[in-house]
Design a binder for these strands. Sequence first.
DNA 1: CATGAATGAGGATTCATTCAT
DNA 2: AATGAATGAATCCTCATTCAT
Lengths: 200, 200, 200, 200
Amino acid sequence: MLQEKRKEITRTKILNAAKKVFAQKGFSNTSIADIVKKSRLARGTFYLHFQSVEQVLNALLQEVFMEIQRNLTELQVESLDQKHFKIGLSALAKSLLNVFQERKEIVGILLTTMNSDTKIRMQTIWFQEFLQASIRVMFDRGIASGRLRKFDSELMSYLVSGGLREVLGQWILYGRYKDSIEQKVDEVIGIYMNGVELNA
Amino acid sequence: MLQEKRKEITRTKILNAAKKVFAQKGFSNTSIADIVKKSRLARGTFYLHFQSVEQVLNALLQEVFMEIQRNLTELQVESLDQKHFKIGLSALAKSLLNVFQERKEIVGILLTTMNSDTKIRMQTIWFQEFLQASIRVMFDRGIASGRLRKFDSELMSYLVSGGLREVLGQWILYGRYKDSIEQKVDEVIGIYMNGVELNA
Amino acid sequence: MLQEKRKEITRTKILNAAKKVFAQKGFSNTSIADIVKKSRLARGTFYLHFQSVEQVLNALLQEVFMEIQRNLTELQVESLDQKHFKIGLSALAKSLLNVFQERKEIVGILLTTMNSDTKIRMQTIWFQEFLQASIRVMFDRGIASGRLRKFDSELMSYLVSGGLREVLGQWILYGRYKDSIEQKVDEVIGIYMNGVELNA
Amino acid sequence: MLQEKRKEITRTKILNAAKKVFAQKGFSNTSIADIVKKSRLARGTFYLHFQSVEQVLNALLQEVFMEIQRNLTELQVESLDQKHFKIGLSALAKSLLNVFQERKEIVGILLTTMNSDTKIRMQTIWFQEFLQASIRVMFDRGIASGRLRKFDSELMSYLVSGGLREVLGQWILYGRYKDSIEQKVDEVIGIYMNGVELNA
DNA sequence: CATGAATGAGGATTCATTCAT
DNA sequence: AATGAATGAATCCTCATTCAT
């Protein structure tokens, strides 16, 4: 019992150290040695908990993935079938922003890791596809319910996921919209819903 | 004279070898040794032409950057101030698609490298910002000319650049829309211009 | 505890191996690879203990430096202020000879390294200056006490340190005076004290 | 004829470049590449004139060796058998100082190279022994002529050559006695001739 | 004679991994 | 469970040397 707790503590030390190092040097430039040094544990200890740097990254990402996934499904169910579609969307977005806010560091790592490293691609691709599928389902429901016009919802899911990723990156990685990010949510929704062209 | 030609050939051999290796293993997992092996040149020869893997990547990226930049400015000037705004946009997009088509390999590398490796970030960020600025200028002109409604053109430039990047990735990296990519152009323009909501 | 002992043993193995290689090939021609090979340890092990060949040499030299320094100060204090100045000097010299005798190998390395390699110069210069200063102080005391005539004691310290270094080199490096080195001590003192000219 | 002159010029360029690099980085740290770069010649050209860095050093040293040797023999013959022994010695020393003065750079290289690098030792040892033999012969003549008391002239030659080398080093390498070196000559002779002890 | 591109051996350094304590 | 010394493969990089022009 005591030993298990101890083990858990050590594991957490490794994860925290890794989080810092990843954020600093980027995933692909961090070695096991780096993590070990930052964690102030012994080299051998690392291997009692993980077998590679990738595994550590995975462990970190899983955390966020699950959190996001939980929020997403929960909120979708709750809000999107309501009459006030846009309001629901807005609520969903803001809820996700909270998750990102709280996990800034890992989200940053995720953003710089997605699509890049082949070793890790499988994990992130799975997540990306999950996101895109979620978005697409939303749109399909919108179309089915007659609220949205007919359009290629798959294509749209790419546009939206990519667009949001970029905005997220600007916020998390480059500090843009520092305190005003929430205010942008409705503007984004407006753009995707009604476009930017003036009605003739 | 002959010697210079020989040097140029060797340089190209390195670049081609690197292109293949990058595409296969990803930038951050390729060592100088990998490139040398693929190029079938001597280890020392590499250093006569480049000093690091990053420099090789840069050389490859510069090529595409310049090509894109050339197309972008040229076409913007030609077409965007005309009456037929959407038609101009469509032409621009299709012209860029050609560039991407012809440089599939490098564009793929660019897509998986952007935002990821800190060593290379400077190059790609510069390019990304150039793209976003170009997009933004387009929208600002649209607003000024009264064709577009007033909106946050900076935010929009992130949404569009990210969205297009994602679509591009789906096409180049995962083979989606293999032969139908051109047909999607107008649909994308439609979405950004008029949104997806049904006019009540 | 045991592990620390093991580490110490390994370190000593490296030092001993280095000592042999330095003696054989000279400092500036020995590579880390050479030392590793001679020590029969793994390449990586070297870096757990030292970071460069210079550091190894330093470790070796420090040993002798300290030993000499200890002898020098101890003996100076004990003997040089006595009435029998020359006898004291003679004792000091013979005591140093013992140190050199016991550390022949390292002293040899020191002799061939002093003044030569810029990378190592700082260490040896420091030592050389310490020696010269010690010698000079001796002479200054001799002058002050009226036992010696007035002369440029700094210049003299160069003459003596250089002269003794050369004799030492002849002994250690080229095997001259193999067993008769002690007998030369008094002759050297005689020369420096009274010169070689016949009193007219 | 023209080609020979051209060849000679190139050779000199190499020697001059080498002189500078040796002085800056020390002999054992300079590579052929270094010399080639400094000389602004092509890599291959080097091999038309020399086959190794050692050969270049030798060529440089030979120059000084011969100059010194010439001065030494010439002056010995002229002056040392005269009545005024010390005056002759003084003249000899000052003449050598001129040689050193004019070849400061190479003499500096010689001083930091002597005894150190095994690759070059043969050359410098030969020279050192020549010097010591010259000195010894002088003393032997002095003894034979009754001007000097009987002493171990070999030992003395080591003391003197080493002492002078050290003073020379202080002058050339560390800039001591910058303009007063000539004035020290007679003081040195005085020390070796009459010692430093006060006559009781 | 001079050039400089290409070579590949060899040395420096890092890294993941093992294992005795 | 935790430690950290040791390992050797893999990488990076430099250097002397060759050779076609």
